[in-house]
Design a protein around this nucleic acid. Structure first.
Length: 884
RNA sequence: GGGAGCAUAGCUCAGCUGGUUUAGAGCAUCUGCCUUACAAGCAGAGGGUCCGCGGUUCGAACCCGUGUGCUCCCACCA
């Protein structure tokens, strides 16, 4: 069979993915093997594949393929997340483009559009993962709004409500005026902004001279002011506490009160209190029994609905419907017009923004559903202990602290969203606003009957739906129906899962909450290890984003370089938890690696028809065989160890070097027969075996090319994808050391050739002066071939008229036609000599130090003595050479 | 404001509990090669005050202190 010049991934990748699928290799059913489970972090249905997914899923695929090859029952579960707020925003946008307003639709009509959208776009990302070679059990694909999943979320809500952990209450929440919904604290992102501090004077109500000046960044909230607060120990304001002042524009009389909360150092030391629009103000308001007057509607526009009639004047009527940021400037101008704006100052502050819409968050008093997290985590001490005690291991471990800190400062979780796309809150209200929480209307009616003695109540379900994360926290259980059908065979077999691979950004959103849910509902951790990936950035270290246009099209990259090369490129420089700087040159390196292996295959295949049973050359070649076998085993142990520690990119580097350097550059060259010469059959067969093993080790990282080469090497019945790896045998350290020495000699003598400008085709003659002639017997012919030497002989004395070099403890005399560059040789030897002398000095210094000799461990001391002896010996050899 | 982490070759990073040859790899660079698997390649080479300063120690890239510069997380001082 003719092999193409370079590796051509496209067809081969397609071929193998369908082969693996047709054979059901990714499918898992419980059996008597040890399970190895990963649940994929479900991407949003709105998503398309980007570099972050690529990194994340490549890592998972490496782990799961490795487990499969370790003989475990590997199960990797795919799925998608309904992503309540993100998806709803997309659907609303899509409708707007079609000229349909969400407000013109009923809930049912809107949801019909949303499902239509989900069916159309929701599966795209999963299809893209197949291109990357991800070995997911597709039959298990789960969606967080599948009927059973939906029911399990509702059931969880009902249970937690019954236990008094979920409650409904009027609280200050983070309000997103763009999507008109409440958000949890985690969904608010604080950003630095340049703003202004406005100094506004409130005149005294009794008409006395002056007034009190406050500094505020938000003049628009003045309309909701109910008090001015100062620090009780602030001398400046001692006399005014208890007095009343007039709020500018709205002309409301409000008291001056005192509270320790106020920082006398900030601004003027006087704080205006707006309980309806600020969390801290709200607390102060409650403490001091103040009203909360809301002046902004759900979209962040001014409304006078909650103001008392007598406070509404013409100016205020003219504010109706004005957006908060326009209003800010307008009110500032109006206050300035009446001479009560003292000054404005530039101010650097922070504002909270919505993670999804980017809108600036309003603190808003709102009736929402909450989870009492302190109470919840107190129900099971394992929730806090699991990570600290490393029952659940974080990689890298530094995220333990982050987790612990969050747990210790946990706040109530606002779980209701004013959205339709999601699990609708199972609370049922009658006309008088009484409510019960139940799985369905029928049960709700029964409850109304027992609780309120109302038969056949007319009930209406809560309009709102639940936070997306209130469903995804059940993911590792419910993908195996562990909530909807507890104690089924699958959940018993697959749970707890082994690994979670995810981004540190969602440690609170998701990881922490899965741990809580896992311990609560299964009394068991959801996963043993959490591998936190870094953020994929561009070459300059910038986050990849649509607006910067620095986010490459992954599918185009796969087309261009092949999936294996992309996987290689993204993995080669991505240690756990570190950001990765994505550079297309890494993909080139991956593609080049493909070609390297492909060409090695071509070389080996060329020999296939030239196999003969040969005795000549065989003896020295056994050195290459014995060495490579041991080297292979050595690396297999090392890779195994690295993978156990989740050092994936380290492992890949080691394998890369094993294949490129050890196998291609050294081993194949050592056993390579001369031009059109036959190769020994035994050597050929061993080589095919080694090559197959190399493909086996690399397979989890680069599944397609390895499977292809594995099969092209010889006629194999099995597939690499499901091959179970053998145990590594013992390692012969002696031969590894001898090979290292041989490599050093080859490189050293090649360097001599280079420096003396001996042309590659020109042969040399080498005379070796060594104490260990026997060692050279097995490597002699390899050495001769590798340095293009016509002959190798052993001598006891210097050979005149040759180039002399010292490698290790042996001297080499090189006979050549070239004129001798004695000066250059001398320089090199002297350089080496200086280095050794410097080294010897440091060693001698140590050894002559009494305290070192007294304190150092015996093996350290022995080592230093050996270093000294070695150095002295080498120095002597070089000095001998120099004297010639 | 609180906490965590990082700083090693031009770039990206290894270097585990202090001693293994006066620091390693990949990429990039330079030199020589179209050598019969591979120029997307081969062979070889150069390149570092291990961020600064101080300390502990017989011995520090590694431990401690301090300064500088980055990064991230948490926290609504209006």
């Amino acid at each position: 069979m003719e092999l193409s010049k370079n590796f051509e991934p496209q067809e081969i990748e397609k071929k193998w993915y369908s082969h693996w699928m047709n054979n059901g290799y990714f499918k898992s059913v419980p059996d008597d093997r040890e399970p190895y489970t990963i649940v994929m972090p479900p991407p949003n249905v709105t998503g398309v594949l980007h570099m972050g997914h690529c990194l994340n899923n490549t890592i998972q695929d490496i782990l799961i393929r490795r487990a499969r090859m370790q003989g475990k029952n590997a199960c990797w579960v795919p799925g998608t997340d309904h992503a309540s707020i993100a998806t709803e925003a997309k659907v609303v946008g899509m409708l707007r483009e079609r000229g349909i307003a969400k407000s013109s639709l009923s809930r049912e009509e809107f949801l019909a559009y949303a499902w239509e959208w989900k069916e159309k776009y929701g599966g795209i990302i999963l299809e893209q993962l197949k291109k990357m070679g991800c070995s997911l059990d597709w039959d298990r694909t789960t969606f967080t709004m599948d009927p059973a999943y939906y029911a399990s979320v509702i059931e969880t809500f009902v249970k937690l409500h019954k236990d008094g952990i979920i409650y409904r209450g009027l609280r200050m929440v983070n309000w997103d005026p763009a999507s008109k919904t409440a958000l949890s604290d985690e969904e608010v992102i604080f950003k630095d902004v340049d703003s202004k501090l406005y100094y506004v004077t409130y005149p005294f109500a009794d008409g006395s001279e002056g007034g009190i000046t406050v500094a505020t960044t938000r003049p628009e909230t003045i309309l909701g002011d109910v008090a001015i607060c100062v620090n009780p120990s602030d001398e400046r304001y001692k006399n005014v506490v208890g007095k009343e002042v007039i709020v500018p524009v709205i002309e409301r009389r409000i008291p001056i009160i005192a509270d320790e909360y106020v920082d006398a150092e900030f601004g003027t030391g006087a704080l205006k209190i707006t309980p309806a629009h600020d969390k801290n103000d709200n607390e102060l308001g409650r403490k001091h029994n103040l009203r909360a007057l809301n002046t902004l509607d759900a979209e962040g526009k001014f409304t006078s609905e909650e103001l008392e009639d007598d406070l509404i004047n013409d100016t205020i009527i003219s504010y109706a419907g004005i957006d908060r940021f326009v209003l800010r400037k307008k009110i500032a101008a109006d206050i300035e017009a009446i001479g009560q704006l003292q000054k404005t100052e530039d101010y650097k502050g922070q504002v909270g923004t919505s993670e999804r819409t980017g809108a600036i968050i309003e603190s808003r008093l709102s009736l929402q559903w909450f989870m009492d997290m302190k109470k919840f985590i107190a129900t099971n001490p394992d929730i806090s202990a699991a990570v600290a005690e490393e029952k659940i291991k974080f990689h890298p471990a530094k995220f333990k602290n982050t987790y612990a800190h969050w747990m210790n400062n946990i706040k109530d979780w606002c779980i209701s969203r004013q959205l339709w796309w999601g699990q609708q809150i199972p609370a049922w209200y009658d006309e008088e606003g009484r409510y019960v929480v139940a799985e369905n209307e029928e049960k709700a009616k029964e409850m109304f009957n027992t609780q309120f003695s109302i038969a056949n109540a007319q009930l209406k379900q809560d309009e709102d739906c639940l936070d997306t994360w209130f469903s995804s926290w059940l993911w590792p259980m419910e993908v195996f129906k562990g909530i909807s059908h507890p104690d089924n065979e699958e959940i018993k077999y697959y749970y707890p899962t082994q690994n979670l691979v995810t981004a540190p950004e969602i440690i609170f959103f998701w990881v922490a909450r899965m741990i809580m849910a896992g311990y609560t509902y299964k009394n068991e951790m959801p996963f043993e290890n959490v591998y936190f990936t870094g953020i994929v950035r561009d070459k300059q270290g910038r986050k990849m984003s649509k607006s910067l246009g620095n986010s490459p099209d992954l599918l185009a990259l796969i087309d261009q370089y092949g999936a294996d090369a992309v996987r290689f490129g993204i993995m080669i420089a991505s240690p756990a938890g570190n950001d990765i700087l994505f550079d297309e040159s890494a993909l080139e390196q991956g593609r080049n690696f493909n070609n390297k292996m492909w060409n090695a295959l071509k070389l080996v295949k060329m020999w296939e028809s030239r196999c003969e049973i040969l005795d000549t050359r065989h003896e020295t070649n056994t050195f290459a065989l014995r060495w490579f076998e041991n080297r292979l085993n050595e690396v297999r142990l090392e890779v195994n160890e690295l993978l156990n520690q989740f050092k994936l990119s380290e492992a890949l580097k080691v394998i890369y070097s094993l294949i490129w350097d050890d196998f291609c550059s050294w081993y194949l060259e050592w056993i390579k027969p001369g031009f059109e010469q036959p190769i020994d059959k035994a050597i050929y067969e061993k080589t095919v075996g080694y090559f197959s093993q190399l493909m086996e080790i690399l397979h989890p990282f680069m599944p397609f090319i390895t499977e292809e080469i594995y099969h092209l090497l010889d006629d194999k019945k099995d597939d690499l994808c499901v091959k179970v790896t053998d145990v590594v045998g013992n390692i012969d350290e002696k031969i590894l050391a001898e090979a290292t020495q041989l490599k050093n000699i080859i490189s050293g003598l090649r360097d001599v050739r280079n420096k003396n400008q001996i042309k590659p085709k020109e042969t040399i003659k080498v005379h070796i002066q060594t104490a260990e002639v026997a060692v050279y017997k097995s490597i002699e012919s390899i050495l001769a071939k590798q340095i293009n030497s016509a002959s190798i002989s052993f001598v006891n004395d210097a050979v005149a008229g040759t180039i002399t070099t010292v490698i290790g403890k042996d001297k080499f005399y090189i006979e050549t036609e070239q004129p001798l560059n004695t000066a250059g040789q001398k320089d090199d030897l002297e350089k080496e000599l200086n280095h050794l002398k410097g080294f010897l000095t440091t060693v001698e210094k140590k050894l002559s130090n009494e305290k070192f000799v007294a304190n150092a461990k015996p093996e350290v001391l022995a080592l230093e003595q050996k270093k000294k002896a070695d150095a002295e010996e080498k120095i002597k050899i070089i000095e001998d050479s120099l004297s010639l």
